[in-house]
Design a protein around this nucleic acid. Structure first.
Lengths: 132, 132
DNA sequence: TGAACGATTGAACAAATGATCAAATGTATC
DNA sequence: GATACATTTGATCATTTGTTCAATCGTTCA
């Protein structure tokens, strides 16, 4: 019997479902409904990329600083009270996520924000945090 | 001399700055300007909490599923194709971040979203990802 | 009360993350 | 070209994260 196939709550999987659903805890209609509206692989990947970029204090401070003014790596390290190297490593991630852009001016490299939408996402979240 | 105190670009700190700024790479006016507008400790803590909660695919899928419908742990494990235990662990985090709430009904525990603002933050981000 | 079952928890472990240090690049100036 | 200096990069290490497994808790129902 199919009920035999589902053993242990820790390893229950979609493939195990069959017609004799009623006897189990789950609501097959709800599961089906939600499953049909799942985020696509691409959507969830893009979303996590954005949120991951925003999910460290260091990067949040970098982004917030750059939202006010273009700054070089050295300036940022002073503002954040962090080593130049640490800042550079984080800028690398933000660059990869296309959240910041840079321009070289002599020996200095100046960073600024690149993605308007993430800026407003950030502002939106900050607004919330400040008024609640 | 004060210039002697600043050695090695990797360990330069705010405290090292003094009047003889001109000889270094940084722009003291910009640093000062940005530093005065820094996020407070509390703000950056709250912001990273929110973004951390949203920065894993599993949690994103959970939140998105719950945004459509209240679901029990078992349902969620089916929708996400993940073990009940893994789902429960993530729900624990989301609960701690006050993003989800739950109610018990018999043997089942039903979860739903708790923070309207994070819901709209999520929707906002999703909207972006879908139209660009 | 005890059997069944949904959910939670803790331990363990692999993978990802973030900072530091040292070394390497790249650019300007002499 | 050599030197100085801003930045980047790679290696390393400690910490955090996410999953699995096994054990436990809580509720229902016979």
């Amino acid at each position: 019997m199919s009920t035999e196939e589902i053993k242990g709550t820790n390893s229950r999987r979609t493939e195990d479902i069959d017609a004799t659903c009623e006897e189990f805890c789950f609501n097959p209609i709800a599961v089906d409904y939600v499953q049909k509206r799942m985020l696509t692989e691409k959507e969830s990947t893009l979303l996590t990329e954005i949120f991951k970029a925003l999910s460290s204090k260091t990067r949040l401070h970098i982004l917030h600083a750059l939202s006010q003014r273009e700054l070089c790596v050295c300036d940022l390290s002073l503002v954040l009270d962090l080593s130049v190297s640490a800042v550079s490593h984080q800028l690398r991630l933000l660059k990869a996520a296309r959240l910041v852009k840079y321009r070289r001016e002599g020996k200095n490299v100046y960073y600024s924000l690149d993605d308007d939408h993430v800026v407003s996402l950030f502002a939106y979240a900050l607004e919330h945090v400040r008024h609640s």
